[in-house]
Design a protein around this nucleic acid. Structure first.
Lengths: 213, 213
DNA sequence: TAGATTGTTAATCGATTAACAATC
DNA sequence: TAGATTGTTAATCGATTAACAATC
């Protein structure tokens, strides 16, 4: 045990671990809504198709959240994972590309309620300008820098066509964005301190085809 | 060298490898459009942020596609990867959930042109029935089995709310679908012979938050 | 030929799983 | 107490990377 209050063990956490945390969180929220108070790594593993030892190890990177012989307190674990993922703060998100996909993602705002919120939408096409998506007014690209600064946006989502994606990424970087979720089917390049996740459904679908008989 | 004509080495290929193949393919298509004839693993690695040795190894699982001292012939490698991923045939895809996201995905049909195609769309809500999405008419769930059989659909996409996802998955399984791409934020359970990929942007986004300072 | 680049083996690195003492 | 379940160490497994002979 270290002396610090909320101090966290210093250690590089692998991306695989970080990607599982939101999955744990989501299921814990389900349990919470069903008024289930406690859960074991066994239970979690069964429901999430994961090895219980892996779940215990993942959580143990961040602290001792469970009770031996009992399991994990659902509410407490939710609180802790939200802290770890920094979802205990409001994180502002901006989206560029007010097409079908962009529109669809904006509608998840309801689902993400507590934590992250898309607070600004941009599009390069003049005829999109002024359109309303889920209470947000589509803004032209020139307003991006000012709006992002004003709203304190830290994460950017790219839902433009592939040829435009790198260009949008560059503009995000210039605006001081810290992380990017790219839906365009192309690998974008950014400085190393900026985190990029690729969420490209076409590669998902194509890799599925491999497993057909 | 084995004696067979198009025979492929028998070996379990890891999922990581299979997931990279579509990324190679996509970039090779870009090169092809630029009339670039040849590419080295070095070049590929640079553009795709991957280790060249890894790329060579990935490809070598399936055959000897390159020429020492030269690199890979772009057109030939495209052909080979398409064969490996089974994208040299037409693969029919169905989608359930004609909301914003479902609508967005249907519009990728143009992009996927050659290989995979969404050929049927379903929704449980009666007022969606008969709507047109990108030349496809939204059908009620009761027609699913008949339509999927008639069209020879092998892959299903789920874009319904989380609470409905498992139910839709069950129906897909009953219809004899072989693989599922699930966009709903929930883990779905299917028999082991059916492949499921989860494409959930909320977990992508939440894991990004971890990397903010 | 000299230079470049593959395919492949060996070395490294990292992630998953098993096992078990500690303890609720 | 007996049973259950954690946190953690050790063992295993698998994936990535380095290195290099073969060869275009």
């Amino acid at each position: 045990m270290d002396g610090g209050g909320g101090a966290m063990k210093t250690q590089k956490i692998s991306e695989a671990v970080v990607r599982r945390l939101p999955i744990y969180l989501r299921f814990l929220n389900e349990l919470s809504m069903k008024n289930i108070m406690t859960v074991s790594s066994q239970d979690l593993g069964q429901k999430l198709d994961l090895n219980p030892a892996q779940i215990r190890k993942d959580l143990a990177y961040f602290g001792e959240f469970g009770k031996k012989g009992i399991g994990y307190d659902v509410a407490y674990l939710i609180e802790k994972i939200r802290q770890i993922l920094k979802l205990d703060r409001h994180i502002q998100v901006a989206l560029v590309g007010a097409g079908n996909l962009g529109r669809a993602l904006c509608n998840y705002n309801t689902y993400l309620r507590n934590d992250m919120k898309i607070v600004a939408v941009f599009d390069a096409l003049p005829d999109k300008e002024g359109e309303t998506i889920n209470n947000l007014i589509v803004q032209p690209m020139q307003e991006m820098k000012m709006t992002l600064t004003k709203l304190g946006v830290r994460i950017g989502i790219i839902t433009v066509p592939a040829v435009e994606a790198q260009n949008v990424a560059n503009q995000f970087v210039e605006c001081g964005i810290e992380a990017i979720l790219n839906f365009a089917p192309v690998i974008i390049k950014v400085p190393p301190e900026i985190r990029v996740h690729h969420a490209d459904f076409t590669t998902d679908l194509q890799s599925l085809a491999y497993y057909l008989d």
